[in-house]
Design a binder for these strands. Structure first.
Lengths: 246, 246
DNA sequence: CAACCTTTTTGACCTGGATCATAAAAGCGT
DNA sequence: ACGCTTTTATGATCCAGGTCAAAAAGGTTG
């Protein structure tokens, strides 16, 4: 189950796909998917304002979605990890609204929206899955918002780390270690914090022995402690899958 | 065009509906829509954790979507105004994740999701519109997030006021006046600010003669000034409709 | 209209995090 | 391995905004 990124990278529409969608649909999707080769860190996938053509899935690597805030300052809106989709806001606007950039060596695949829509026209299962996918993105976005608004730097970063941990370990990765694909500055920006603050909070976490961190390599020492710190997302009911969007 | 809230309240799927969807679809939707009578301020529409049944549209009034943050403190996640839909996150989770409460005398209508989906099965137009709707919600959510993260109280509230103004005037309402349906505390909470701060910023806006405000009644005196203050949402390309979600 | 309760405003104070500055590490390309 | 650039860490300072407290408006209900 760990070769997920090899087998049906783009097709992991919201985690539980193979069984849910059926082989025929998977085949159709595979046919329309545009597999892009791996690109180097710093490569832009698309730029805000470009006409919307396709939604993208991350196969390997990581993506940041950014906006340029007035002064030209870069503001990170979201990160996208393997198995997640981005560019979805283009559906509404006919243009991409964020610029997306590879954080490391990254491979994405594109699902041209018109074609995707046509396939969906013939497959109710896929339609339902698409709705679920988008709903999940809204949920993620709201969680993020709720976790940031009116909370301390500690809480925000604890939340972010736990969130990244969970999303990274989706394809069966080690659960106690984590290699961050982004800089402290980028991580901070996504939480509305200055890079210096991010760095200091990391130190604090180390001192408290919540994590071990050398550079971008994190080891979780005390998950319970981190969770206590982080904003508790009181998602009632069951555990659910996750998604993201640009 | 101002009796929109009377004619096809629920059906205004993402603003541009009548022409886009066609009369037959409208008729079908009208048939499945559950029109709820107006409820008093403070009435809960649904509670976090309840099983997901329907998505809701606001006909008249206003809704707040809230979460209870650890300590039991209420945190406002979003406001929903006439013409907007909420409860969409339930699609993914099978449960509502926010609690939604009427802020004033409010009428909503419910679109039972299964039925909605069935109608959509027969109408590609509606499918497309639903995708657009959800994409728009993601966009709104991201805008909000970007506008709040790492910006001053002034900027956040200026943004919020302009946003509310725009959304309120959707059905052809006066563009220079605004009756806020929420308290300062609620407005602040949605921006991650303390009520006192919200109040003080309002005073500051008054002194600067950006707005005139007596209680919940706002008059915009200097839109350009407010916009200069607010976080500029560099949405490239065209102007687009708006939406919201719970 | 009076008593009551909620919301808003204002003041005083204090702290979390931004900012500025600089040093120490890491990466990284050659 | 060696510079060079980018990233991270840490210290000092400052201020926006949170918190506590209390008064002043508003609204609501009997």
């Amino acid at each position: 189950m760990q070769d997920q990124s090899e087998v049906s990278p783009c097709l992991a529409l919201d985690a539980a796909t193979p069984e849910v969608l059926g082989d025929d649909v998977i085949e159709r999707l595979r046919a329309i998917a545009v597999q892009h080769g791996a690109v180097a860190a710093g490569t832009r996938i698309f730029r805000a304002g470009e006409p919307f053509r396709a939604i993208y899935g991350v196969r390997i690597g990581a993506i940041k979605a950014i906006r340029y805030d007035g002064t030209g300052e870069e503001q990170v809106v979201a990160f996208h990890l393997p198995g997640e989709f981005f560019g979805l806001t283009g559906i509404h606007s006919d243009h991409y609204v964020n610029t997306t950039v590879a954080l490391e060596r990254t491979a994405v695949c594109g699902l041209p929206y018109q074609r995707l829509f046509h396939v969906a026209n013939e497959h109710p299962r896929l339609r339902r899955q698409l709705m679920r996918l988008m709903s999940g993105v809204i949920l993620t976005e709201q969680d993020q918002y709720a976790a940031m608004a009116g909370h301390t730097a500690d809480a925000r970063l604890a939340f972010l780390l736990l969130d990244l941990r969970e999303r990274m370990s989706r394809g069966g990765a080690p659960q106690d270690r984590l290699r961050l694909p982004m800089t402290r500055a980028e991580l901070g920006s996504s939480a509305g914090l200055a890079p210096e603050t991010t760095s200091r909070v990391f130190q604090q976490f180390r001192r408290r022995e919540l994590i071990e961190a050398s550079g971008r390599n994190i080891r979780f020492l005390d998950l319970a402690g981190l969770r206590r710190l982080a904003v508790p997302l009181t998602h009632p009911g069951h555990g659910t899958g996750r998604t993201t969007a640009a």
